[in-house]
């Protein structure tokens, strides 16, 4: 019984990682209609950056905001130079560009760091275990869950209750009208894209401890991230959260209860959901 709960905690923690890494993808796809297959590569960039700065002596907790800012700036730079020209291009062109970017970043990581697995030094209080209600849980899992929950709340607040969120929704609803009332749509999109990249970078930095890191990281988890978006519905933060938590726990549960089924269940679930609800659980009808 208690080991089942531990598995569930594991699943929720994994789900939170998925949420952090995928929510930016969901937002850029749902709001800006850009299919970013390089989103996993942003997570990878954040992960390598965290490994490097922590190895150089920066405390883990300070590395996280640094990664957030740097990967966010990187995202904005790419949005400004290239991606903004692709919003109105075909899905194919978006796919080609972003796969190319993912390949190039993966190859760069391979050139700089080599093909081997990387490890990150986390502080002692995160590597320990805590006894909670008679359960023995890794504190890093709890930390992940707290980080994910805090981010989800902050994002929902940002998009639903701030001027920034209102402007975004206005710009997406009717771009011309939004520009007419003085909203700088271009800048808004760049910021949103950067925010998505920053969150992916954060997700990547937090993933190293649990999932490991090598140059294949970007493509290995891309399918999972896309699934979160597909099941949660593009553009929906709550949807992404639900889908990520659902996928994380189901994955963990099946790996525990029925290891033979493995990745099978997850992909089967994806196909089933898309058959029943092509726009995702919380997706807006296209």
């Amino acid at each position: 019984m208690s080991s089942l709960v531990a598995v569930l905690v594991d699943g929720v923690a994994y789900g939170m990682l998925l949420f952090l890494s995928a929510v930016g993808l969901s937002v850029t796809l749902g709001l800006m209609r850009f299919i970013n297959l390089a989103h996993g590569a942003f997570a990878m960039v954040g992960a390598y950056l965290a490994v490097v700065v922590v190895a150089a002596g920066l405390p883990f907790l300070l590395a996280l905001p640094l990664v957030f800012v740097v990967v966010g700036a990187f995202g904005i730079a790419i949005e400004r130079t290239a991606i903004r020209h692709l919003y109105r291009r075909s899905a194919l062109e978006q796919v080609l560009f972003s796969i190319g970017l993912a390949f190039a970043l993966g190859a760069l990581a391979n050139l700089i760091f080599g093909p081997q697995q990387q490890a990150i030094q986390t502080p002692a209080w995160l590597t320990g275990r805590v006894a909670l209600a008679g359960l023995d849980i890794t504190s890093y899992r709890l930390f992940l869950i707290a980080m994910g929950a805090a981010t989800a709340i902050a994002l929902i607040y940002l998009f639903e209750h701030t001027l920034f969120g209102a402007r975004i929704r206005a710009a997406v609803d009717n771009r011309r009208a939004a520009e007419g009332i003085g909203i700088q749509v271009e800048r808004l999109f760049a910021l949103t894209f950067g925010l998505g990249a920053a969150l992916a970078g954060l997700g990547g930095a937090l993933s190293v401890e649990m999932l490991g890191l090598d140059p294949a990281f970007a493509l290995k988890y891309l399918t999972m991230l896309l699934m979160v978006v597909a099941i949660g519905g593009a553009g929906s933060i709550e949807g992404s959260l639900l889908a990520a938590l659902g996928l994380g726990t189901i994955d963990a549960l099946f790996k525990y209860l029925l290891p033979e089924a493995g990745g099978f269940v997850i992909f089967g679930l994806l196909v089933a959901v898309l058959l029943v609800k092509p726009a995702g659980l919380k997706g807006r009808a296209a």
Partner: peptide, 24 residues
């Protein structure tokens, strides 16, 4: 499954099914 849906769902379905068959 592949024939219906938008470009994005199609990308996902093809990717998801491919992962499924790879796993199988």
């Amino acid at each position: 499954i592949v024939v219906r849906g938008s470009d994005f769902t199609r990308l996902l379905v093809t990717l998801g099914v491919a992962s499924l068959i790879h796993e199988a």
